[in-house]
């Protein structure tokens, strides 16, 4: 009960009361997924960001890809991919990493145009990412900056989940086995050659379906709490 009183659920209700109309309030209209729910009954939004660096306060988002999971299916018809226009010039090394050029990004949209789409898709759903602190951190900073409110959500981190599963089963966690491509191999998932935010988002979504399917006992409930990312 203590957690419920001071947790994100109550804070959400408080925000709803005092917050002006806008994308953030739209986002908070639906309740945050409750941890004591069977994971199959929940919806998820697989998200991946491509960034100029890893610091949410100083680095920028270059692209966002997402796809929802409904009824344990990744729904590609509701997937989306946005190029985001950064406010400054690109540092050289990230151009190399992602193959994004200033030219291509010139066609991109500013973050304030893209973020509402993300929030709408995420509303009432569990955020899902491979190494979720990145996505949580950057989206939270973006929300704070653009709307003055933090992003309260529950998340699944497929990387952390894989690590936990492996530790539980006494399997090694070194040698890069936690990386997205390697972790997927363990579950007989295909190797994707292309890398962009949407492909990686879909890839992490598929990984989650596999991880959960392997963890869940037949006919028994498996609560979100057991799969959820716990960082706070």
């Amino acid at each position: 009960m203590w957690k419920r009183i001071f947790g994100p659920d109550l804070r959400r209700e408080w925000y709803l009361l005092k917050m002006p109309e806008g994308p953030m309030k739209q986002f908070y209209r639906k309740p945050i997924p409750w941890p004591e729910t069977d994971y199959r009954e929940l919806e998820y939004l697989c998200i991946d960001l491509e960034l100029t660096g890893l610091n949410p306060l100083t680095d920028e988002i270059l692209s966002i890809g997402f796809a929802p999971i409904v009824d344990q299916n990744v729904i590609l018809s509701e997937s989306a991919h946005y190029l985001v226009r950064p406010s400054g010039d690109l540092p050289e090394n990230s151009v190399v990493v992602h193959g994004l050029t200033d030219d291509r990004l010139a066609e991109a949209e500013p973050l304030e145009n893209v973020l509402p789409h993300v929030l709408m898709a995420l509303s009432g759903r569990v955020l899902l990412a491979h190494h979720a602190p990145i996505e949580l951190g950057f989206l939270n900073v973006a929300c704070e900056r653009l709307y003055g409110y933090p992003l309260l959500t529950r998340a699944v981190d497929t990387l952390e989940l894989e690590k936990r599963n492996r530790l539980q089963r006494n399997q090694p966690i070194d040698g890069g086995v936690l990386r997205l491509a390697k972790a997927r191999e363990t579950y007989n998932l295909p190797r994707y050659r292309a890398h962009n935010a949407l492909v990686d988002a879909v890839a992490s979504g598929e990984l989650f379906l596999a991880q959960a399917a392997h963890k869940a006992a037949k006919g028994e409930k498996l609560m979100l709490r057991e799969l959820m990312f716990k960082n706070r």
Binding site: N73, L76, S77, S79, L189, H214
Partner: peptide
């Protein structure tokens, strides 16, 4: 075509 697809994972025996 890809935009119409839904992706599902099935464990052996499902």
């Amino acid at each position: 075509l890809p935009k119409s697809i839904e992706v599902r994972y099935a464990r052996r025996g499902t």
